[in-house]
């Protein structure tokens, strides 16, 4: 029972990080109808900036700079690249984000090389035990920070004028524009927030029990795609639910791997995708996504 609880808590923590990344996808998608495949690269970028600056300016300043830098790159790529091609074919937009992803990751992979960079999280690799349930301090802080951020974000959607504008733009772009909502600004803010969230998630994804920053951080971030999709690409609640489901499922399958050998070794890596496919067979628009209705 306690092992199960351990797996569950660790899964929730991983899931809350997936949810942070998935929320980034969702708000970018709501604002500009692009699924941002360069998000993994943003994570890598945030982590890299923090890891390089941490020795000279200290951890918290480095994190702040990392978040700002990532948000800035996201903002610039939206302004310079994606705001020009709003009406392009979906495949073109997708491959464009993939092109950006390729450039950033090639560069960062080259810079990181085969070394494992440490982000120098001050909480280290300690483990907290409560009645037999153990979780690393890093993961515990991750849950708290992620839920605070997600709470703030949900409040922003509900109460700030940007949140209202975003929801209006996602609902009906043309009508929103006619009501005087500046879509360019809504889009820009969405990309900035998504970039910042990616950097925050990167801080915790590179902490214990992970050894540090490696180029494969991008692959880990890929698991947030199924999270965003199975929750429903245009639903923020869905991103949260999807992230938690994927995180818990992955953690449980990884934990009970020994008794699940018939699925093949290392099945936990593909669990997010398997779960997503099962959900999509039943609900093609995800759990909370809006169904497309056709009126003739």
């Amino acid at each position: 029972m306690t092992t199960f609880l351990s797996f569950l808590i660790n899964g929730l923590s991983l899931g809350s990080l997936y949810a942070l990344i998935a929320l980034g996808f969702v708000i970018i998608y709501k604002a500009s109808e692009i699924l941002n495949f360069a998000h993994g690269a943003f994570l890598l970028l945030g982590a890299y900036v923090i890891a390089r600056l941490e020795p000279s300016v200290g951890f918290f300043a480095a994190v702040a700079i990392g978040i700002v830098a990532t948000a800035l790159v996201a903002f610039v790529s939206e302004r310079v690249l994606f705001s020009r091609v709003r009406s392009a074919h979906m495949a073109s937009l997708t491959i464009m984000t993939l092109g950006l992803d390729l450039i950033i990751t090639t560069d960062l992979t080259r810079r990181i090389g085969s070394s494992v960079l440490s982000l120098g999280q001050p909480w280290g690799a300690g483990v907290v035990r409560v009645g037999g349930v153990s979780i690393s301090e890093n993961r515990l802080i991750a849950i708290v920070v992620a839920f605070v951020l997600i709470g703030l974000l949900f409040a922003a959607f509900r109460f700030t004028s940007w949140g209202v504008a975003l929801r209006a733009a996602a609902e009906d772009g043309e009508a929103a524009a006619l009501m005087g909502i500046r879509q360019a600004r809504v889009g820009a803010v969405a990309w900035i927030i998504a970039g910042g969230l990616a950097a925050v998630a990167a801080v915790f994804l590179t902490g214990s029990p992970t050894p540090g920053l490696e180029p494969n951080l991008r692959t880990i971030a890929f698991a947030a795609f199924p999270a965003a999709i199975l929750g429903g690409l245009d639903s923020t609640t869905g991103a949260l639910a999807g992230g938690l489901i994927v995180g818990v499922a992955e953690s449980l399958f990884a934990g009970y791997n020994a008794s699940l050998t018939f699925l093949g070794g290392g099945f936990s890596v593909v669990v997010p995708y398997a779960v997503m496919m099962l959900v999509l067979v039943a609900r093609p628009a995800g759990l909370f996504g809006t169904k497309e209705l056709h009126r003739v």
């Binding site: 699924l35 795609f225 999709i229 398997a274 997503m276 628009a285």
Partner: peptide
């Protein structure tokens, strides 16, 4: 449809 199919095929 659309991006859902893209990610499903990615999976």
């Amino acid at each position: 449809k659309g991006l859902y199919l893209g990610i499903a095929s990615l999976g």
